[in-house]
Amino acid sequence: MTIDHHMLVGFAKSFGLFYLLAMAAVALIYACWPANRNRFDKAARDIIDDEDRPWH
């Protein structure tokens, strides 16, 4: 069991860093992907408009 615990702790101590880097990379790539630019701009603009009824 001791090995199990050490293994778990070792995993916990190291894995976070790799996971963090991978996660940050994916999020940054998604957010900065050039093709997404127009979609984001439109999304930010669209909520401002004053239409207050569902679309059909």
Partner: peptide
């Protein structure tokens, strides 16, 4: 009545 400054920042 202004769009959010940076939509990308909000996602990150």
């Amino acid at each position: 009545e202004r769009p959010i400054y940076s939509y990308r920042m909000s996602i990150i």
